[in-house]
């Protein structure tokens, strides 16, 4: 399973997006607001989940800001950190 697929599964299962399936999540849809409908406090949860599942601690919030644009952006960020 690639990082995007794994992320979608985490979003649905760990953030309880019950009316969505991983397949229904658009790679480039915004995570917050109109896209997946996550709110600002969900960002806290997302930071925790990324650390739990990928072992990556997002300490620089400017990086987080870029990464949290979409599933694609977050997957690219994670892959980049894992490869470093």
């Amino acid at each position: 399973m690639d990082t995007k697929q794994k992320l979608k599964k985490i979003l649905v299962e760990d953030l309880n997006l019950e009316e969505l399936t991983p397949e229904q999540i658009d790679d480039d849809a915004p995570l917050f607001g109109e896209g997946l409908g996550l709110d600002s406090l969900d960002a806290v949860e997302l930071v925790v989940l990324v650390q739990k599942h990928f072992g990556i601690e997002i300490k620089d919030m400017e990086e987080g800001r870029t990464a949290f644009q979409s599933v694609s952006a977050l997957a690219a960020y994670i892959d980049g950190r894992l490869a470093a």
């Binding site: 709110d39 600002s40 406090l41 806290v44 601690e57 300490k59 919030m61 800001r65």
Partner: peptide
């Protein structure tokens, strides 16, 4: 951005102090 939550999280991860009013709602939640 995101109600300042990421910035607050960063503050805590750096071992610093963040102060949030407990009796006033600012943002969601």
């Amino acid at each position: 951005y995101l109600g300042g939550t990421l910035e607050m999280l960063q503050v805590l991860k750096h071992g610093e102090v963040v102060c949030i009013m407990g009796d006033r709602v600012m943002g969601s939640g």
